[in-house]
Design a protein around this nucleic acid. Structure first.
Lengths: 203, 203
DNA sequence: AGCCTTATATACCAGTCGTTATGGAAACTG
DNA sequence: CAGTTTCCATAACGACTGGTATATAAGGCT
């Protein structure tokens, strides 16, 4: 409908940076979950008032979905790199080490936004939960595909159940996220990864 | 102070069963988390009014702690049986199969109350979180001790890192709880357990 | 009987939730 | 300059939050 409207600003320009405000909102959601983050928390962290927030992002739920987009694009970028590793073993290790970096960053909240948003489910957040589930399903499907390729490549034994191995790896990642959110240290999580890699099949 | 006061009921007797009401409260907390469960939800499910609830249980937080006691005693009883299994392998398998039964029961909410309560953390629930973390730490310590015994018994290789293996198993349990709470089927979780048992060291 | 103690039921408290109407200020176009 | 459009700020909305005050009802004790 509109052609390159970057220049066509008619009225008064907004006084804040949308991307920057969204990043601040992501931080709040990440730290407190969807329902735990109040509009007051959000507006304070974003440095804007409530009407500005509603004008720029719609409402709380729309803001969350956009924050989730940002989270996937920025903090979950490592999963894309993981799928490009040469062997199934390296794929799994990249997933887990990357998860540690993402979940234990000193400047970000601990844990995984997806896990936090999915478990904290008070009826109103049902659509939030559904969104997170859908995103994770597509991500998991990509991992299944990668492991099937690994089996064809011969770096994964023929007898392993791919769906099982994928869910197993995801369970580990989610469990690590839970532990990251409840006081585990980076060394704790690294021990989990080391143990997992020692047990990994193709070795 | 008081000696067997079961008979000494002075005033009007209460019209509901405390244990039954607590069980109903547990169901609500389990399904919606601590913060997601409102007093209206609780009183409705328990079949009592708010003043009765406050008189019998103190407040929402005290009610939650008592519900957590009940949860540990009833739904987490399988962990005690698991520790008594003859080998480390059987201990781990009993833990995981028991977790499936507890998290996928057709008459109870899906997932693990501990995981749900720990991840949903909105400031006010900080003491809730601390309680859950403490309980899990003691449970985890018991598993460490059991695995050290297994190493002495020779059914666990000498080179394995016990702390790592324990956190690894707990991560799997917590990850399965996350998946149980987000639409996974019993077959999905059983695939995770089968995969885990195929990778388990001492085999 | 009457008293005493406790439970129940209704109504209410102050505070917060997400959301929005209102009024004025700021910047662009003509 | 006026006109228009959009922004920001204050304040308010009804609904709901956890928690209580008050009044009435129901049992045991003497």
């Amino acid at each position: 409908m509109e052609t390159a409207s970057a220049l066509r600003v008619k009225g008064r320009p907004r006084e804040f940076c949308v991307d920057q405000a969204l990043a601040a909102a992501l931080g709040v959601f990440w730290a407190k979950g969807y329902e735990g983050a109040s509009m007051a928390d959000l507006t304070e962290a974003m440095g804007i008032t409530k009407p500005s927030l509603y004008a720029a992002f719609g409402n709380k739920e729309a803001l969350f979905h956009k924050a989730l987009d940002l989270y996937e694009a920025e903090k979950l970028e490592y999963t894309r790199a993981a799928l490009e590793q040469p062997t199934a073993r390296k794929v799994a290790e990249h997933f887990m080490r990357g998860a540690i970096d993402a979940q234990m960053s000193s400047c970000d909240p601990k844990g995984c936004l997806g896990v936090i948003s999915m478990t904290a489910c008070g009826a109103e957040a049902e659509s939030i939960k559904a969104d997170v589930i859908k995103r994770r399903a597509s991500s998991q499907a990509a991992l299944v595909e990668r492991f099937e390729q690994a089996k064809r490549d011969g770096d994964l034994p023929m007898h392993v159940d791919i769906a099982g191995l994928t869910s197993f790896l995801y369970a580990l990642l989610q469990g690590m996220a839970v532990q990251a959110g409840s006081g585990a240290t980076r060394a704790d999580l690294e021990r989990v990864v080391d143990t997992s890699m020692q047990l990994w099949p193709s070795r």
